[in-house]
């Protein structure tokens, strides 16, 4: 899959306005504003099992996800820091 970068935007007195009207300090297409234009990978498909995984909890302890008979909402977000 070839993924294009969304670079449309314009500079305003408050920063760069992207194609959806959001204004930020960086130009669309660069750094944290490197968004895809058009189709991009979205991982496992509807109908598949949510894959098990291992990572860390907020205390730095190992966390293993395995299905536990509850509906699950799994969010992948950019960052809590910026």
């Amino acid at each position: 899959m070839t993924i294009e970068i969304e670079t449309r935007g314009e500079k305003t007195e408050h920063g760069w306005r992207d194609v959806d009207g959001f204004i930020g300090p960086m130009q669309p297409g660069f750094g944290p504003r490197t968004d895809p234009k058009g189709v991009f990978p979205t991982g496992p498909d509807i109908g598949e099992q949510l894959p098990a995984f291992s990572c860390l909890d907020v205390m730095g302890n190992p966390f293993d996800y395995a299905h536990d008979a509850k509906p699950t909402i799994m969010l992948f977000f950019r960052s809590a820091v910026w």
């Binding site: 944290p32 895809p36 991009f40 990978p41 979205t42 991982g43 496992p44 498909d45 509807i46 109908g47 598949e48 099992q49 949510l50 299905h67 008979a69 509850k70 509906p71 699950t72 909402i73 799994m74 969010l75 992948f76 977000f77 950019r78 960052s79």
Partner: peptide
């Protein structure tokens, strides 16, 4: 960073 997104599963773990 990921392409940010959210998955929802049923109680069987199916998306």
């Amino acid at each position: 960073i990921p392409f940010p997104g959210t998955y929802v599963t049923d109680s069987q773990g199916t998306i």
